[in-house]
């Protein structure tokens, strides 16, 4: 009963907006979230709610608990409820055609968040908002090249899980950035499985294999490994951030604490705010019929000690990381 009343109210509101009123229409958007398997994803959910509130959008979040069938069910239910748009963080890349067609037939635009699906299904979506993990690696590499300058510098790398596409891409981007700087030499690269414990263990072995003073910088595919590596450096009597430069990716709260303490130098943000640009695109499409580009790339923002890390830490720590 209440549902239908609110939908009617929405329809009235939408019609008013259509009627040329300058004020934004109130949209209802369904969000099929994968789950809450990592701190980043928990933060993404939190940020999505905040971004929706900021824009006066009503967002309905369905947690799929890592299961595609739950996501398909959620999308069907959104279609049945007649929402204005659907955000989908797809758990897998294939198998979406049928349900996306249903959404298209109901004239409900679907926007992919933070992960892509196979090209075949792309025509059925309005756009995809994702980060570019190759770009993240490149930003990290460029920062390092800028910071080191012309001095020779031995770099060690803590890779993500072997075979994970994020790890492959972050390595690719970083390698590309280093390619034009002959003074930067990647001397060791091992997997730290994206975990603190392994990051620490691998860094320990790097320090001993190369000699702590011979390492000039460490690059980690995520901040968690870097947090572990920082401990390893400290326990080896080195000063991370000074004796050895650090740059990692993700921008989770704990790395800002380290940056504030001078123990880490830089991190590249994988923003949890994927929904903000998605909402903007949806609104523009609904209001003005603007068709967004097929890929909206989020900014891979670099943070260093110059960016008031404690403030960033405070703003991020409540997000659920």
């Amino acid at each position: 009963m209440r549902e239908s009343v609110s939908i009617k109210a929405l329809l009235v509101g939408a019609m008013l907006a259509w009627g040329g009123a300058a004020q934004a229409a109130s949209l209802t958007v369904g969000f099929s979230q994968i789950g809450s398997e990592s701190g980043w994803r928990a933060a993404e959910t939190t940020v999505t709610k905040a971004e929706a509130k900021k824009r006066g959008i009503t967002v309905k979040i369905a947690d799929a608990q890592q299961k595609q069938e739950n996501q398909i069910k959620a999308i069907r239910s959104f279609v049945a409820q007649g929402v204005d748009g659907i955000l989908l963080a797809p758990v897998v890349a294939t198998g979406w055609d049928a349900v996306l067609k249903e959404a298209r037939d109901a004239k409900i635009p679907v926007i992919l968040l933070d992960r892509d699906i196979d090209p075949a299904g792309k025509d059925l979506t309005l756009t995809a908002v994702t980060s570019d993990s190759v770009e993240e690696g490149r930003v990290a590499g460029n920062w390092l090249a800028r910071t080191v300058g012309e001095k020779p510098c031995n770099v060690v790398e803590l890779q993500g899980t072997v075979g994970a596409s994020v790890a492959t891409n972050r390595k690719k981007g970083f390698d590309a950035a280093l390619a034009s700087h002959a003074n930067l030499k990647l001397v060791r690269s091992q997997t730290g499985d994206f975990t603190r414990a392994k990051g620490k263990e691998v860094m320990e072995s790097f320090i001993k294999a190369e000699g702590g003073r011979a390492i000039c910088a460490v690059y980690a595919h995520n901040d968690d490994m870097m947090v572990g590596a920082i401990q390893a450096m400290k326990e080896a009597g080195l000063k991370p951030g000074k004796d050895i430069l650090t740059v990692s990716i993700d921008a989770v709260p704990d790395i800002f604490k380290a940056i504030a303490a001078g123990e880490a130098n830089a991190t590249v943000e994988l923003t949890p705010d994927m929904a903000g640009p998605a909402f903007d695109a949806l609104k523009a499409y609904k209001d003005k019929g603007t068709v967004p580009p097929k890929w909206i790339q989020t900014e891979s923002k670099l943070y260093t000690a110059a960016d008031d890390p404690l403030k960033v830490y405070e703003s991020k720590k409540g997000l659920g990381y």
Binding site: F194, T195, R196, A197, K200, G228, Q231
Partner: peptide, 9 residues
């Protein structure tokens, strides 16, 4: 060792 509990790993 890592000054934290990482339930996932």
């Amino acid at each position: 060792d890592i000054l934290g509990a990482d339930a996932n790993n």
